Deep mutational scan, measured.
Amino acid sequence: NNDALSPAIRRLLAEHNLDASAIKGTGVGGRLTREDVEKWLAKA
């Protein structure tokens, strides 16, 4: 759900042209964290 994304995470996803639904969030309530996105980028 994009409503649950912080502005910083939205920007990070946009910079790398990523789809938030492709990344499993580990934050509160399954929210994406910066670490989630960075780990996903490291694997890609």
Rank of each mutant, 00 (worst) to 15 (best):
R34H: 08
N17K: 10
T33E: 03
L18F: 09
G25P: 06
I23E: 01
W40Q: 06
R11N: 08
L32P: 04
G30R: 04
V37K: 00
D36N: 01
T33N: 02
G27H: 02
W40R: 05
L12W: 10
I23L: 13
R34W: 15
K43A: 13
A14P: 00
D3V: 09
R10H: 06
L18R: 02
A20F: 09
P7Y: 05
A22W: 15
L13K: 00
A42Q: 12
A8F: 12
G27P: 01
G29K: 06
A4V: 13
A8M: 12
E15V: 14
R31G: 06
L5S: 04
W40D: 02
N17I: 05
R31S: 11
I9T: 05
W40K: 04
D19K: 08
A4M: 13
R10P: 00
L41I: 14
D3I: 09
L32Q: 01
V37T: 01
G29P: 02
S6K: 05
T33A: 01
D3E: 12
V28R: 10
R34E: 11
H16Y: 10
L32N: 00
V37P: 00
L41H: 07
L18I: 15
G29R: 06
N2C: 06
E35S: 09
K24G: 06
I23Q: 02
A44S: 11
D19M: 08
G29W: 05
L5V: 10
G25Q: 02
A22L: 15
H16R: 03
K43Q: 14
H16N: 05
S6D: 15
R31E: 08
R10D: 04
I9N: 01
A42R: 12
E35G: 08
S21Y: 07
D19L: 10
K24N: 09
D3W: 01
H16E: 01
A20I: 12
W40P: 01
D3N: 11
S21P: 04
D36V: 01
G27V: 02
S6V: 05
A42I: 10
K24Y: 07
I9D: 02
D36H: 00
L41T: 02
E38H: 08
I9G: 00
D19F: 05
G30H: 04
